[in-house]
């Protein structure tokens, strides 16, 4: 009985999360005529047709958006992880004037939703002439307060001071210590930060929507939105949007499945060291 209740709650949670995804999967198989006529979970016959139509839409602009999203999410998450790891390491392992102030400001930064910053960031980027460039979407996502916060906590727990002391006695410089001692120990934490940032950038809508004017630089989220809001007098291309949404979540699922083992190490590692 005591075991049944949590299992039941978890099953309900899984159902709650998976039902919409399975709806997308089924709906993507429907041709435009079937979309509003077949039952919600009755598979249609148009998946291949939808895929072909999506690929052909405006000379394959969908794949361009996919490549853009991969660049924004992959590049942004990598850079953000690097910055977070170095900053977190420094905050955790060095004592210097203003350390607590910086950390408190960072925690304040965690509380400010990035949505609020998008418009001011746009105005600033426009001023320096970077609006409507790839940098306009990449740069604001590199500094991520929550990532630095996580890295600091993780470095504090996973990198023993004694190990660093030993390295210093052996004559290692600070950079060398960071690279050879700190970062290898922090890998599981960095994977967590990378995944967090990757998913956040992959799904980000508002920042690229405001920053970008050129539809060749759009990520998937903004690109698919142009299909949805096609103007009052044009029908929305629902079948393409749903198929596009399905394709756009496949990389995320693949990433989680391959990164899962690091994620697990992270949780258990944190528990032992903490």
């Amino acid at each position: 009985m005591t075991r049944l209740v949590p299992t039941g709650v978890l099953l309900l949670g899984a159902l709650y999360c998976l039902l919409p995804v399975s709806w997308v999967l089924v709906a993507a198989s429907k041709s435009p005529g079937e979309l509003f006529t077949l039952g919600a979970f009755t598979p249609g016959s148009g998946l291949l047709g939808n895929l072909a139509e999506l690929s052909a839409y405006r000379d394959g602009v969908f794949w361009k958006w996919t490549a853009n999203t991969a660049l924004y999410a992959g590049g942004g998450a990598l850079l953000s992880t690097a910055v977070s790891a170095v900053a977190g390491f420094a905050l955790a392992k060095y004592r210097f004037r203003g350390r607590n102030l910086i950390f408190n400001v960072l925690i304040g930064g965690v509380l400010v939703p990035s949505v609020v910053l998008a418009v001011p960031q746009y105005l600033l980027f426009a001023k320096v002439g970077l609006a409507d460039t790839y940098w306009a979407v990449l740069l604001p996502q590199i500094l991520h307060p929550y990532g630095i916060y996580l890295a600091r906590i993780y470095a504090g727990a996973a990198v023993p001071d004694s190990l660093l002391e030993a390295g210093r006695i052996d004559g290692g410089g600070e950079w060398r210590l960071l690279r050879k001692v700190g970062l290898p120990l922090m890998v599981p934490g960095m994977v967590t930060i990378f995944l967090f940032q990757f998913v956040a950038i992959w799904n980000n809508f508002l920042l690229p929507f405001i920053m970008l004017g050129d539809d060749g630089k759009f990520p998937l989220t903004v690109g698919l939105y142009t299909l949805l809001a096609a103007g009052a007098n044009q029908p929305s291309l629902y079948n393409l949007i749903i198929t596009g949404a399905l394709l756009s979540i496949i990389p995320l699922i693949a990433l989680f499945l391959t990164m899962q083992r690091y994620w697990r190490t992270d949780l258990s590692g944190g528990a032992v060291k903490g």
Binding site: F209, G213, D214, D215, T226, L228, A229, A230
Partner: peptide, 14 residues
């Protein structure tokens, strides 16, 4: 050079 945008009220705000 045409840049295709999302239509509607959001387009005006943008």
């Amino acid at each position: 050079t045409v840049s295709k945008q999302a239509g509607g009220d959001d387009a005006a705000a943008k």
